[in-house]
Design a protein around this nucleic acid. Structure first.
Length: 412
DNA sequence: CAGGCGTGGTG
DNA sequence: TCACCAAGCCT
């Protein structure tokens, strides 16, 4: 059985807190009763009415705009999203525009925001809405949940904010706040424990103002009830929060650790044609950074493998390049730079190698581009507006530029 | 279910 | 430098 707050006796704290009555046990959590619940909601929403953050997506109840903000905000900071939100809406002002957009243009607008499947899923959902709902965002939870990329949290957020449906929106903030309210020991990392917070959240949410209630949780979670360096004694809910009353805020939420990122090694090929343009390719058939563009990357595996003699390294590189691209560039012996990029689950270590194409190889590449056989393209430095590059590629460009700067003998 | 999936900020 | 984090969802 999941550990919850069974070791806590709420009644012990009734005299020295705002808790006035005891309520039911929900999923093993002893919660306060209806009298306290009303008091709690009023206190919380009064605070929200006075102190809520003014954010671009709070200016409208349009479900499309709420939806866009909720997808962008998944695992992403508010400050980062603000830089993308208006641009996205101006590029794709309606569900129809999103549904009909070119994927390349979609990724270009999302470029740098990360978790790119979010925007691909959002377009798929927009197409679902065009097909199944005449282009009108569905107004009930069951249909909202069917949309690609919308899970239990996002459905609750859109449902409550845009349509006033009385449901909680259980994200990391909500689990942190609720775990501190009732000193819930369930590991929030475990999917099975979601139902505990869903159920308690459902009990707590104000049925008259569910959207404001859920957004109040967000604001509280980003101000007084933060993951680190919380200031629970300044929270408007301090007298309702068991962890604050017992000075155990830092014990909540319980959260198990995730595996740390593993290193992967690559050789990036900076291949120039006669015009001085550089070869890039679209990452089709990948899961990571799918359909974004990078220079050719040769995977060297999980060990550096760089303690080989120089001539063997070159031979290896030539063989790999011939294998993957059917060409034999003239490589510079020494690497021209390096890049380190950290993903959630991987760390890429990239060595940049410069090479020039022989005319016959350049023709081979050009033929593949012309025939549409492969997603290659030639780009000149600083003329990147047509392609969506992930941040790791922007770092590669930067390293290449640094090298050119340091070696005033222009590579050409 | 565990692991995959980005990026930038923070202590 | 590094661990951890920020309005999760999909497979």
């Amino acid at each position: 059985m999941t550990e919850v707050n069974q070791d806590i006796d709420l009644s012990l704290y009734m005299n020295e807190s705002a808790i006035q009555d005891l309520g039911p046990v929900i999923e093993g959590v002893q919660v306060w009763g209806p009298v306290t619940n009303q008091d709690f909601r009023k206190t919380f929403l009064d605070w929200y009415d006075k102190e809520s953050r003014r954010l671009p997506w709070r200016e409208s109840k349009d479900p499309y705009r709420i939806w866009v903000s909720e997808i962008m905000l998944q695992q992403t900071r508010v400050d980062t999203v603000i830089g993308y939100y208006a641009r996205f809406l101006s590029a794709f002002p309606t569900i129809k525009a999103l549904a009909e957009a070119e994927e390349d243009q979609l990724l270009k607008v999302w470029e740098g925001l990360g978790y790119y499947s979010r925007v691909r899923n959002m377009q798929a959902a927009a197409q679902q809405i065009m097909a199944d709902h005449d282009g009108i965002f569905p107004d009930n939870l069951a249909d909202i949940k069917k949309l690609k990329g919308i899970g239990p949290y996002t459905a609750g957020a859109i449902g409550s904010i845009a349509f006033g449906i009385p449901v909680p929106a259980i994200d990391g903030n909500a689990m942190r706040v609720i775990s501190r309210l009732f000193m819930i020991n369930a590991d929030i990392q475990k999917p099975a424990n979601r139902k505990i917070f869903e159920a308690v959240g459902q009990y707590l949410v104000d049925p008259d103002r569910p959207g404001d209630f859920n957004q109040a949780i967000m604001d509280l979670g980003s101000s007084f009830e933060t993951p680190k360096k919380a200031m629970p004694e300044l929270s408007p809910l301090r007298d309702f929060t068991m962890a604050t009353l017992t000075r155990t805020t830092d014990n909540y939420p319980v959260k198990s650790k995730k595996a740390k990122a593993k290193p992967v090694y690559y050789q990036a090929l900076i291949l120039q044609n006669a015009k001085g343009q550089v070869l890039i390719e679209k990452r089709t058939q990948h899961k990571l950074l799918n359909n974004l563009w990078t220079v050719p990357l040769i995977n060297l595996g999980t060990s550096a493998n760089q303690n080989l003699p120089a001539n063997e390294k070159t031979a290896f590189l030539l063989a790999e390049t011939q294998e993957a691209y059917g060409i034999s560039p003239i490589f510079m012996r020494k690497e021209i730079g390096q890049v380190k990029h950290v993903f959630t689950h991987l760390i890429w270590h990239i060595l940049l190698t410069y090479g020039q194409l022989k005319p016959v190889d350049e023709k081979k590449i050009n033929d593949m581009i012309t025939s549409g056989e492969a997603d290659y393209a030639w780009v000149a430095p600083h003329q990147f507006e047509d392609y969506a590059f992930p941040t790791v590629q922007m770092k590669v460009w930067q390293a290449y530029e640094d090298y050119q700067k340091d070696n005033h003998h222009n590579i050409k």
